[in-house]
Computed example of a mutant assay.
Amino acid sequence: MVTKSSSDLARADSLAREIFSDVANKWALLIIEALGERTLRFGELRGEVEGISHKMLTQNLRMLERNGLLLRDVHPTVPPRVEYTLTAAGQGLRKTVDGMCDWTQRYLGHIEASRRRFDG
C-alpha cells in the first residue's frame, strides 16, 4: 500500500526518495538506455556502457532487478548464460531516460557555452 509518506520525495525516509536515489545515477540511466528493447548479456552490456567497471555494472544490475526494472534470466549452461531485459516498469522509466537524452542533445551547445563563460 502506497501512503503519502512513502511516496513523498521531500521526506528523508520516503521509499520514493530511496527509489529515486537508486535510479537517478549515471550508470543506471546508461544501462537502461543500453538495454532499450533488447535482451543483452553481461559482457554485451559492459561493452555498451563505456567506462563502467565490472563491479559497478554488477551493483547496478542487482539494484535494477531488486526494484523490478529488469529481469535477470539465467540459462542452465556451462558456463551459465545470463541475460538482462527491461520489465514494463523499466520500459516506462526508459521513456523518461529517452527524454533526458533528448534534452541533453538539445541543450548541449547552450550548456557548453555557459560553462565556458562561467569558467572563463
Rank of each mutant, 00 (worst) to 15 (best):
E44K: 15
E44R: 15
E44S: 12
E44G: 13
L45N: 09
R46E: 11
R46W: 07
R46P: 02
G47V: 06
E48N: 15
E48P: 09
V49H: 08
V49C: 06
E50I: 14
E50M: 10
E50F: 11
E50N: 13
G51D: 06
G51Q: 09
G51P: 04
I52S: 02
I52M: 06
S53A: 06
H54S: 07
H54T: 07
H54R: 11
H54F: 05
K55I: 13
L57S: 04
L57A: 02
L57C: 06
L57N: 03
T58F: 05
T58M: 09
T58W: 04
Q59M: 14
Q59S: 13
Q59F: 12
Q59H: 11
N60L: 09
N60P: 08
L61P: 02
L61E: 00
R62T: 08
R62F: 04
R62N: 07
R62E: 03
R62G: 02
M63G: 00
M63E: 01
M63S: 03
L64V: 07
L64I: 10
E65P: 03
E65H: 11
E65T: 08
R66P: 02
R66Y: 06
N67V: 12
N67P: 05
N67A: 06
N67T: 06
N67I: 11
G68S: 10
G68I: 14
L69E: 00
L70S: 01
L71F: 05
L71W: 04
L71A: 05
D73G: 11
D73Q: 14
D73V: 13
V74F: 01
H75A: 13
H75G: 03
H75T: 10
H75M: 12
H75R: 15
P76V: 12
P76E: 10
P76C: 08
T77M: 07
T77A: 06
V78H: 11
V78S: 05
P79V: 13
P80Y: 15
P80F: 15
R81P: 03
R81K: 14
V82W: 00
V82A: 01
V82S: 00
Y84W: 09
T85Q: 08
T85M: 12
L86A: 01
T87N: 02
T87Y: 01
A88V: 12
A88F: 11
A89D: 03
A89I: 09
A89Y: 04
G90K: 05
G90E: 00
G90Y: 04
G90R: 04
G90A: 08
G92F: 10
G92R: 15
G92I: 07
L93D: 00
L93I: 05
K95P: 00
T96V: 13
T96L: 15
V97P: 00
D98G: 06
D98V: 14
D98M: 14
D98W: 09
D98K: 14
G99C: 09
G99I: 11
M100H: 05
M100D: 02
C101N: 14
C101T: 14
D102M: 15
D102G: 13
D102F: 14
W103P: 05
W103F: 15
W103R: 15
